[in-house]
Amino acid sequence: MSTDQIARNKAAFSRLHDAQSSGDLEVFRKAVDEVVEPDVLIRTPLPIEATGAEALKQVGAMLLRAFPDLHIEVEDVIAEGDKVVFRNTVTGTHQGEYMGVPPTGRSITYREIMIVRFTDGRIAETWGIVDVLAQMKQLGLIPA
């Protein structure tokens, strides 16, 4: 894979981060449509029934409803071949229902690592490790 294609893959996934951090669900949904294969394979357990790109849209909507000020800070980017890895810090204020938890007004910070595989410039497969334990502790659902 050429260095140009690797750079385009990194830019495409960064676009999703930027769209999610924009706080605008329509901007995020449009970015998903433009850079993600409709039948993307998501290898991370999600709290929804949908699959493919629709699952990403639903998770994005859930996060933006719960944390309207959601921000994803990219800490590291590693790319080789058809894969790009991002290590992120996510912050937000719990202002809406999240996985059955009513708004607490608490600020949260958690980390995640995302691996994405590209085919023809579009995201075709994803893996994610999200620190859900940190989320639950900060929302007061698990003792700190």
Rank of each mutant, 00 (worst) to 15 (best):
P103V: 06
G23Y: 12
K137I: 14
R15W: 03
A79M: 07
K10H: 00
A66P: 06
I113V: 15
M136V: 08
P38D: 05
R29D: 12
V40I: 14
E37K: 09
E75C: 08
D39C: 01
V132R: 07
I129P: 03
L133V: 04
D24A: 14
I113Y: 05
E97L: 03
Y110M: 13
A66I: 02
L41F: 01
A50C: 02
P38G: 14
E125M: 09
I6G: 00
R43H: 12
E125A: 05
V130W: 00
V40K: 03
R87A: 00
S2N: 15
V116P: 02
V74G: 00
L141T: 01
E54V: 13
R29P: 04
P68K: 03
E26Y: 03
A50H: 05
L70Y: 10
R29W: 04
L16A: 04
V27W: 06
L139K: 13
D82T: 15
V59Y: 07
E54A: 04
M62L: 15
R111D: 03
P68V: 07
G121V: 04
V132D: 12
D69G: 15
T109H: 01
A50V: 00
S21T: 10
L133I: 10
A31D: 09
P45I: 06
E73H: 02
L56F: 00
L133S: 02
L64N: 01
I115G: 00
H71D: 10
T126P: 00
R87P: 02
M1R: 13
M136H: 05
V35W: 04
D76W: 11
V84H: 01
A124G: 08
I142L: 15
V32A: 09
H17T: 05
A134E: 14
Q20V: 09
E125K: 08
A12I: 10
A19P: 07
E75I: 15
D82S: 13
P45R: 02
G81S: 05
N9R: 07
S14F: 01
E125Y: 06
P45C: 12
D18A: 15
T44G: 00
I108N: 08
V77C: 12
A31R: 11
P103Q: 07
I42D: 06
S14H: 06
P103C: 15
Q138L: 11
T109K: 12
A66N: 11
A31K: 05
E54K: 05
D131R: 08
